[in-house]
Amino acid sequence: MSRNLIIGSALSALFVALAVISFLWTPYDIETLDIPNKLQSPSALNLLGTDQFGRDILSMIMMGARTSIAVALLAVGIGMALGIPLGLLAAARHGSLLDELIMRGNDLVFAFPSLVIAILITAVFGASAVNAIIAIGIFNIPVFARLTRGAALPLWERDFILAARVCGKSATRISVEHILPNITNLMIVQGTIQFSLGILAEAALSYIGLGAQPPTASWGRMLADAQTLVSIAPHTALVPGFAILFMVLGLNLLGDGLRDWLDPRIRVART
């Protein structure tokens, strides 16, 4: 196990644990305002201090982790659920009109700056966590479709695929039985990286007020709220900022570590 993998999984596990614990328990209830206690610095009572409404920031971070992870996870789920089949289909029908249509469709989505379209979607359909998930998810589809197609194409040239075709298996069946298991590692690694990008995108949408709506906690909106308070209570901005930083860093290290760990060639070289 590489150092990247250990640090990455530890950081990611920490935030996932915070999110899970938040379902059972948080230090304070974040829906109760406690104005007299506002903008407290970190102390024994409030480990990470309080915000402008006197809410406990640690509790907010825990609830925010839940939002971030849920949005990013579902967005990656959408990307995988639609992107991988599209990619498999394009590879199976390589060179056909269908392949062209899928790939040019991908290019079309890639051609737009993702955040701008996400803003458009949430602006038209209203700002909510669900719309943020859909907006981010749409941009994950071409990533997975393209990666899947690229990885599947050389596999289609391999003899064991030919042998399966000789056995009369359909392209769909070969894609599911033979291609998919051989690209799983790649998808896990890319999934981790897209997950971290999803966290960032969710934070960005929330920051401009187009993500999860109050009272649902969100790191991006915590940052936005803290913007005017940086000079008098810097911890209100620093804490969510570092939460985003460490979560994204953790996931990237995890993805990197997984890539090395899952690649048998690199693993052999190391042992």
Binding site: R158, D159, F160, L162, A163, V166, C167, G168, S170, H178, P181, N182
Partner: peptide, 23 residues
């Protein structure tokens, strides 16, 4: 796919390393 014809023939390829799904 015409299974009735296909079941009458099979093939053995050159590369013993690429002929099988490693999983």
């Amino acid at each position: 796919s015409n299974l009735a014809v296909r079941r009458k023939m099979q093939v053995v390829f050159q590369d013993p390393y690429g002929s099988f799904n490693p999983r």
